[in-house]
Amino acid sequence: MRLTILILISILCFSCGKKQAEEVKPPRKAITSVTVNPIFDDSISIRAIAVTPNDDLIYGGNKTTIGHYDAKKNTHTALLKGKVPDSLNVSFRATAYVNGNTFGISIVNPALLYKISSKGNVLLVYKEAHEKVFYDAMAFWNTREGIAIGDSTDDCMSMIITRDGGNTWNKIACENLPKVNDGEAAFAASNTNIVTKGNETWVATGGKTSRILYSGDKGNTWTSYETPIVQGLETTGIYSLAFYDAKNGFAIGGDYTKAAVNEANKIRTSDGGKTWKLVAQNSGPGYRSCVQYVPNSDAKELIAIGFKGIDYSQDAGTTWTHLSDEGFYTIRFVNDSIAYAAGKNRIARLTFK
């Protein structure tokens, strides 16, 4: 009996010690360098990318480009080639990949939203004709429900929503959205001024007013929050928004016409976007078009990217290290050390070490 008790105590102690060892994670090693490996070189400007579950890449650009990169085969497929009129010449700055389907919505008039199935079937699922139409970004809450946002055509930001897997899209009435301020719009710079987490949604506006529009119920109701980021001109404000979880978020931007200026262009929240604080005032990167959290970094590590280079923070944006002068528009992580980046006439695979 005594032996049995001793064995049980030993097992319990071993299990407890093992659990404690598993819970104590060693600190992540700081990123000190990045290697850029080109995977696409063509005269196409690419501002929208999305990583698929098997680590392939979907991308959208000008010249009616929606493409698929097969990482294992190292090959590219033009998903719209031969399936839309050759005379069509539109630009896609918002893409998404959901449940085997690729989505892309074009900028300017008319807005065209295509759904491309895994078998390559192409459907035009939404069209909007208006002299002011300009869609900037797209995201999904789940496999059935998604949202695309754009500049105002009336007195609110344009928002369209699908509840049936992207087969039909309906525009939210302005009476159900915050009224847009004079000179307020959004930037189609990197398909990252909209973020969804669970049922929650954050949309970043920019220009003469730069705010966060928030919905906690998948786009049914909305409110707005002010931010301290630089604003007041058509070229100022938030260009990119990221959330690590429902509480911790980061936004970056500035003025792309004054790309070196790093005053009031980086902000952080720890309460789900209700309040924002300026960080790295007059230090770190100036204008950047995209910011993303490094996966598995406990909301501490960030990569900011733009046509002036790549920058890294390991303290939630308080201080920054410039990693490279290589210019890109947008970035998405595959894991905590590999990412895809796209920009003017190219896509690359980035390795962070």
Rank of each mutant, 00 (worst) to 15 (best):
M1G: 14
M1P: 15
L3A: 15
L6Y: 14
L12V: 14
C13L: 15
K19I: 15
A21L: 08
E22M: 08
K25E: 12
K25L: 14
T32H: 05
S33C: 09
V36M: 06
V36R: 00
D42S: 15
D42C: 05
I46M: 09
V51G: 09
N54C: 06
N54Y: 00
I58C: 07
I58W: 08
Y59G: 10
Y59C: 07
G61K: 04
T65L: 04
H68W: 15
Y69C: 05
H76R: 07
K81T: 12
V84Q: 01
V84H: 03
V84W: 03
F92Y: 15
A94Y: 10
A94N: 04
G100Y: 07
G104T: 05
V108E: 13
V108G: 01
L112C: 11
I116T: 12
K119P: 01
V122P: 13
Y126R: 00
E128R: 05
A129R: 02
V133S: 00
Y135A: 00
D136R: 02
D136S: 07
A137N: 05
M138K: 03
T143L: 04
I147G: 13
G150N: 00
T162A: 08
T162M: 02
R163G: 04
N170L: 10
I172S: 01
E175W: 10
E175H: 13
N176P: 12
P178R: 02
E184H: 04
E184I: 11
A188S: 14
S190K: 01
T192H: 09
T192K: 13
V195F: 09
K197R: 13
W202N: 09
A204K: 00
T209F: 10
T209H: 14
T209S: 15
L213M: 12
G216K: 12
D217R: 10
K218R: 15
T221E: 03
E226H: 06
P228Q: 01
P228T: 10
I229N: 07
I229W: 12
Q231D: 04
L233K: 14
T235R: 01
L241A: 06
F243Y: 13
A246H: 04
K247G: 02
G249Q: 03
F250M: 05
G253C: 02
G254H: 13
Y256E: 04
Y256T: 10
T257S: 11
T257H: 03
A259G: 00
I267W: 08
T269W: 04
D271K: 03
G273F: 11
T275D: 09
V279Q: 03
V279W: 03
G284D: 07
G286Q: 00
V294E: 01
P295T: 10
N296L: 07
S297M: 09
D298G: 08
I305K: 06
G306W: 08
F307K: 01
Y312A: 03
S313H: 12
S313A: 08
D315C: 07
A316W: 11
A316T: 06
T318E: 12
T318L: 00
T318F: 04
H322Y: 02
D325A: 14
F328Y: 14
F328Q: 00
F333Y: 08
D336P: 02
D336M: 02
A339W: 05
A339K: 04
Y340A: 05
G343N: 06
I347R: 06
I347A: 04
T351L: 05
